[in-house]
Design a protein around this nucleic acid. Structure first.
Lengths: 164, 164
DNA sequence: GGCAATCATTTTATACTTAAAGTAATTTGG
DNA sequence: CCAAATTACTTTAAGTATAAAATGATTGCC
C-alpha cells in the first residue's frame, strides 16, 4: 500500500532544526571574526574592511582588474564597487584608467604607495587571523576546509536551481 | 647554543596561508548563503534580512525584550537596532513600550500580525536553509557544528585577549 | 552599414551599519 | 541625600550595500 510513506512527504514536514542551527553558528563565527578584523584594521591602520578587501583583490594581480572583475570576486554589487573605488582613488591608493581597447572598461590598480601600505597591513592581518584560529589543530583546519568546500558547492547548486 | 631556535621565532615568520585560506572560505560560504537568503526574502516576502533577523529574535520570547538584548543577540550596534525597530513599529510588525520599572528601557514585542507574518516567512526560510545545506550528510552537519564551535571559542578568546 | 542586443559602469533611492557623542534615567558610594 | 558612575537609548556623520534605472560603448547579425 505505501500509504504512510506516500503521505508522509506532504503531510509531515521534516525537521530541519540541525541545518538552521548550523547556519546560525556559521553566521555567528563569521560575524565574530569579521567584527574582530574590522576593529583591528580601524584601530591599527584606520582603514575599513571593504577597502582592505578591495586592495587585497588588486594586490593579487600586477596589471590591475576591471570593476566588474572586482565586483564578482568580492561578491558585491557594481554600484558598491564604484563608490569604494572612488574613495580609494581619492586617497591615492588606487590608480584608474579607461581601457584602450574598450572605452566602457575601467582598469584599476594599486598605486605604488597603495601597494606598500597594503602589504604592511596584510602582514599584520595574517598574524591576526592565525591568532583567531589559533586553537584549531592542523587537522581541524583541513577538515573545516573540506566541509566548507562541500557547503559552498551545495549552496551554489541550490542558488543555481532557484535562478534557473 | 640554541641560536637557531632562538632566532627563528623573530626572524622567520611562520606561514599562515592555511588559516587565511580557511578564513576566506568561511567568509565566502557565509556571504553566498546570506546573499541567497536575502534574495529569497526580498523576492518572496519583500522583507530585508535584518528585519527578518530581528523578528526571529522576538519570536523566541512571548513577552518581548529590550533593545539592548536585541543588540547583543544580533551582534550589532545599538544605533542600528534603534533604526530597525523604528521601521518595524512603523510597519505594524512591532509593538514598543517604555518599561514601568525603568524608564530608560524600551520593551519591544511582535504584534499579533507581525507574529503571523513572521511564522509564515520562517516556515519557508527553514526549507531554503535545508535545501542550501542539502548535500551535507548528517555526519557532515555534526562535524561542522563541532568545528565551528571550536572556531567560535578560539575567536572569542583572541578577541578577549586583545581587548584586555 | 545599421539596428538590436548586450555589456560595463554610473546614478538614484533607500536601507543598513558603525563609532562616537549626546541625552536622560538609574544606581552607587560616601 | 547627593554627586559620580553607569546604563539604555538616540542622534549624528560617514561609509557601506542593494536593486533598479540610466548612460554610453561595443558586438552580432542581417
Amino acid at each position: 500500500m505505501m500509504l504512510d510513506s506516500e503521505t508522509k512527504a506532504v503531510e509531515l514536514p521534516e525537521d530541519h532544526g540541525d541545518e538552521i542551527r548550523l547556519w546560525l553558528r556559521l553566521l555567528t563565527c563569521t560575524t565574530l571574526i569579521e567584527g574582530e578584523v574590522r576593529s583591528r584594521l580601524r584601530e591599527r591602520f584606520d582603514v575599513t574592511l571593504p577597502r582592505f578587501d578591495l586592495m587585497a583583490q588588486l594586490d593579487k594581480v600586477p596589471d590591475g582588474m576591471t570593476l566588474s572583475d572586482v565586483s564578482k570576486r568580492m561578491m558585491v554589487s557594481n554600484g558598491n564597487v564604484t563608490g569604494l573605488v572612488e574613495r580609494l582613488v581619492e586617497s591615492g591608493h588606487l590608480d584608474r584608467r579607461t581601457s584602450d581597447a574598450d572605452r566602457r572598461v575601467q582598469v584599476i590598480r594599486l598605486t605604488k604607495a597603495g601597494r606598500v601600505e597594503f602589504r604592511k597591513m596584510a602582514a599584520e592581518h595574517e598574524l591576526w587571523i592565525a591568532d583567531i584560529f589559533g586553537d584549531l589543530t592542523p587537522k581541524d583546519v583541513r577538515e573545516l576546509m573540506r566541509l566548507l568546500a562541500k557547503t559552498k558547492a551545495s549552496a551554489q547548486k541550490s542558488a543555481k536551481a532557484r535562478t534557473a
